[in-house]
C-alpha cells in the first residue's frame, strides 16, 4: 500500500518542470516549428499593419458581410443540429430499430470524409440537377450556390459534434430517476422538461459550441457548394483564401487574425462548458 502511494504521480505534485530530457526537446521543437513560429508570423504581420489599417480592413464592407454570412449561418446550423443531434443521440441510445447500427456508425462520416469530397457531393446533390436540388426546387428553393448551400454544408460537418458529445452522457443517465418522477405523478412532458433535460443542457451547449466553432472555420465543403460571391454567400475563410490569391497579404492577415481570435475564444468557452458539464455529471 505504501509503495503504491509513493508511486502514484498524483500525490507528488512538484512545482518544478520534469527534468529536461529528449522528450521535452522533441515537444518544444515540434511545437515551435509547427505552431508557435507560424502563429507568431501572423500576429507580427497583424501588428506591423498598425491599428488604423487593421481596423479599416477588419471593418470593411466586404469583411462585415463575410462575418455576417459566416457567423450567423454557422450559429443557425449549430442550433438546428443542437435540436436534431440531441434527438438522434436520444433515439440511438434509448430505442432499438432496424438500421440503428448503420446510423450510429455513419454519424462520424463527416469527420472521416475529406471536406472537398463533402463539398463536391453536396454541390451535386443540391444543384438544380441533383436529387435533393430538384426536390427543393419544387418549392422554389435554390440551395447549391446560395447562402443555403453554405448552411447545408455547415449542417453536414457540425452534426457529429453534438451527437458524439451527448451520447455518452445519455448512456450514463439513470432511468430510475425518470421512473421515480413518473411514480410521483409527473406526466411525460414534465418528466422531460424537469428531469431529463436539465442535466443535458451543458453537454448540448458544449456540442453546439464545438459544432459552431468548426462551422465558422470550415473551408473545403463550403467553397465547393457556394458561389463565393461577396455580399451573397462569401464566408470569412474563403475571403482569406481569395485575398491570398490576389496577393493581398494585409487583407488575408486581418481576416485571418480575427478568425484566430475567434478560435481561441471559442476554445476557452468550450473548456468552461466542459467543466460545467463535468460538475453536473458528478452530482
Amino acid at each position: 500500500m505504501l509503495i503504491k502511494n509513493v508511486s502514484n504521480p498524483d500525490l507528488k505534485f512538484t512545482d518544478k518542470l520534469p527534468k529536461f530530457n529528449v522528450n521535452w526537446l522533441i515537444i518544444i521543437s515540434y511545437l515551435t516549428l509547427i505552431l508557435i513560429f507560424p502563429s507568431a508570423a501572423l500576429i507580427t504581420k497583424s501588428f506591423s499593419l498598425g491599428p488604423e489599417e487593421f481596423w479599416r480592413i477588419a471593418t470593411s464592407k466586404i469583411a462585415i458581410s463575410a462575418y455576417n454570412v459566416t457567423f450567423f449561418t454557422a450559429l443557425f446550423a449549430a442550433a438546428i443540429n443542437g435540436v436534431m443531434g440531441t434527438l438522434i443521440a436520444w433515439v440511438l441510445v434509448r430505442y432499438d430499430f432496424p438500421g440503428k447500427k448503420i446510423i450510429d456508425g455513419a454519424i462520424d462520416l463527416p469527420f472521416a470524409l475529406p471536406t472537398s469530397v463533402a463539398g463536391l457531393v453536396l454541390a451535386t446533390v443540391y444543384s438544380n440537377q441533383g436529387i435533393l436540388g430538384k426536390f427543393f426546387g419544387i418549392f422554389g428553393v435554390k440551395i447549391a450556390f446560395t447562402r443555403l448551400g453554405v448552411f447545408v454544408a455547415m449542417l453536414f460537418i457540425s452534426l457529429p459534434f453534438i451527437v458524439r458529445t451527448l451520447q455518452p452522457v445519455l448512456q450514463e443517465m439513470e432511468r430510475e430517476v425518470e421512473e421515480a418522477a413518473a411514480c410521483l405523478g409527473a406526466n411525460e412532458f414534465q418528466t422531460f422538461t424537469k428531469v431529463i433535460l436539465p442535466p443535458l443542457i451543458p453537454p448540448i451547449l458544449t456540442g453546439v459550441a464545438l459544432g459552431f466553432s468548426r462551422a465558422v472555420g470550415e473551408y473545403g465543403s463550403v467553397v465547393l457548394v457556394a458561389s463565393n460571391i461577396p455580399f451573397q454567400d462569401l464566408i470569412a475563410p474563403v475571403l482569406v483564401f481569395q485575398y491570398l490569391e490576389e496577393y493581398n497579404y494585409a487583407g488575408a492577415t486581418v481576416i485571418g487574425t480575427i478568425l484566430l481570435l475567434f478560435a481561441l475564444i471559442s476554445l476557452l468557452g468550450i473548456n468552461l462548458l466542459q467543466q460545467w458539464s463535468r460538475r453536473y455529471a458528478i452530482q
Partner: peptide, 25 residues
C-alpha cells in the same frame, strides 16, 4: 501545454495555411 496541443483543432485550416504562407512565403 494540453490546451496548446489542442489549438490546431479549433483553428480554421485556411488560417493555418495563411500562417505558413506569412512565415515561409
Amino acid at each position: 501545454l494540453l490546451s496548446i496541443i489542442d489549438v490546431p483543432f479549433s483553428i480554421s485550416p485556411v488560417v493555418a495555411g495563411l500562417m505558413l504562407v506569412l512565415l515561409y512565403g
